[in-house]
Write a protein that binds this DNA or RNA. Structure first.
Lengths: 187, 187
DNA sequence: GTCTATACCTGGATAGAC
DNA sequence: GTCTATCCAGGTATAGAC
């Protein structure tokens, strides 16, 4: 197993902490504690905290693209592919309950902060949005494929938010069933 | 028109700012600027920032209860009452686009911060949840009324989140139509 | 009840030794 | 490449005059 560089370790740790505690609420001390480096050392790798955020977003974008490629290679049928999307609610249930949706909570926070990285972060949504739109287009649906993509995106978003606030896994499971049924009945 | 006390002015201003900028990101200076008092003066009215937050939550809870009472007096039919709930997406469209849902964004932030006021804030959701459950019960639906309440709550939550992130009012309008149709078809 | 002054702390950022 | 020391800004909170 290849050893991670300090740069990668920082990005990895920041990624987790931004997700678990929020961006603003995560300090250099928090990250330093995880990576086990001194605070001053950050500035050898990054110019500012915002640059760490940028690296984290880039890291997540890369991971997301990889995930979508995997779903595409695993399933030929667009409907099955969309089902893969729904299944992340199931796969990440424990984390969603604890910390909410990593995309939604980050984008919402940055939007409230009027943060310059806002548009970059929104790409995290847009990658899914575009990909879902493609799948719906291949299903030859009468409705606007982009509207369907937004619909399922916001549906999962609402589920994650409520599951997070109420710390309720059962609710996630209930809604997953409904989203799947909605998908099957699409014509 | 009765003049507001300083206490009320602080709560009112904090309420707005917490919504627009987030709780953590709002400083005493920000509030002081709006109310036009000095920073030191806060501590005559509140022991800490958390106490301001508590007052804001209480303020919102009172307003919410009043709103529900109003909906009840305006509509006898439970279905029409639920429609009133859906309509807040329409009425507050501009603000939702700009700042998201006031309940959802606050609760999500406090949950991430592991803030002690977390459970109090969740009451803001629970008031709606309980009230919606009552309405669905009166509609004599075969499904669990609480599940339906959670469903519509999370639906509106997802819509608010995506509309906020994408600054998209058209999407809100599209989804409102769908929620209304869902409500009408409930059996 | 409101103000000014100030204490105290934390967090981001810099300089420079090793 | 990593450390320590340090600076500076800002945020919460306190003391005490008016």
């Amino acid at each position: 197993m290849k050893r991670q560089t300090t740069f990668e370790q920082i990005v990895e740790a920041a990624d987790q902490l931004f997700y678990q505690q929020g961006f603003e609420n995560t300090s250099f001390s928090d990250i330093a504690e995880v990576v086990k480096i001194s605070r001053g050392n950050f500035y050898h790798h990054f110019k500012s905290k915002n640059e760490i955020l940028n690296a984290v977003i880039k890291h997540r974008l890369d991971n997301t693209r990889e995930l979508l490629n995997q779903w595409e290679s695993e399933n030929q049928n667009p409907q099955d592919r969309v089902q893969s999307f729904i299944n992340i609610l199931l796969m990440n249930m424990a984390k969603i309950k604890k910390y909410g949706c990593p995309v939604g909570t980050l984008c919402t926070e940055l939007t409230k902060l009027q943060h310059p990285a806002q548009t970059d972060a929104n790409q995290l949504f847009s990658i899914f949005r575009g990909w879902l739109t493609q799948q719906f287009e291949r299903m030859h649906l009468s409705q606007n494929a982009d509207d369907l993509a937004m619909h399922i995106l916001s549906w999962s978003q609402g589920v994650a938010t409520l599951a997070h606030v109420y710390q309720d896994e059962r609710f996630i499971q209930l809604e997953i069933t409904q989203i799947s049924n909605w998908l099957k009945q699409l014509k």
